[in-house]
């Protein structure tokens, strides 16, 4: 069973790296979908079945389709990125890698706080989560509706065709 975890992890990291190094946008997106599936698989291993499902539906299903749609819509599949200068590029990569190394070394040397497993291993099942969600986290749940409302209006507002000329003052 342990090997399953390591294989999955290796694949996840590989897919994620491929996302950032493939030059073709469509390929990046497909690798991203792959990454999401792998992460879902991790969720299954962690017994978080509900989230595994949601992850597939929301991320791999909805969000990635949106991405793919936009790329196709804007006809970007030809738009292969050219790396002009290596200096900022390597600076970026090095600084990111440095952050990871620093973090990792700090992690290695420090002892995690030990917490007992109090709630058992069935927390990720839908009945447990539902109970907690609607009992303790009712309020954020409601607030989420406002979030979606804002996003919805926002998209409508931004996507709307300009019916009237923008008034003069708004043009900087």
């Amino acid at each position: 069973m342990q090997n399953l975890f390591y294989i999955l992890s290796g694949l996840t990291i590989f897919a994620a790296i491929m996302v950032i190094i493939s030059k073709h946008p469509i390929r990046s997106i497909l690798f991203l979908v792959f990454t999401f599936f792998l992460i879902s698989a991790h969720y299954v291993l962690l017994n978080a079945q509900f989230l595994a499902l949601v992850n597939v539906v929301v991320y791999a299903g909805a969000i990635m389709v949106l991405f793919l749609f936009v790329v196709m819509f804007l006809n970007l599949n030809q738009d292969i990125e050219r790396f002009k200068s290596w200096i900022p590029l390597s600076a970026a990569a090095i600084s990111g890698a440095c952050l990871f190394l620093v973090f990792f070394s700090a992690f290695r040397t420090s002892v995690l706080a030990s917490h007992e497993n109090t709630g058992g291993y069935q927390q990720g099942l839908v009945e447990n989560l539902g109970e907690v969600l609607y009992r303790d986290y009712l309020f954020p749940m409601e607030i989420c509706s406002i979030l979606f409302l804002v996003a919805m209006i926002g998209v409508v507002l931004l996507g709307r065709k300009e019916r009237v000329e923008p008034i003069k003052n708004l043009v900087p």
Binding site: A48, V54, T118, G119, L129, V132, Y137, L147
Partner: peptide, 26 residues
């Protein structure tokens, strides 16, 4: 959350997904 048997982490993840969806659309 899974190792500690503490559900709030997974709820948070649910919300993060919701937020991500909203953010992606905008």
């Amino acid at each position: 959350s899974a190792y500690r048997g503490e559900a709030s982490g997974q709820i948070m993840v649910l919300f993060i997904m919701a937020v991500a969806a909203a953010e992606v659309s905008v």
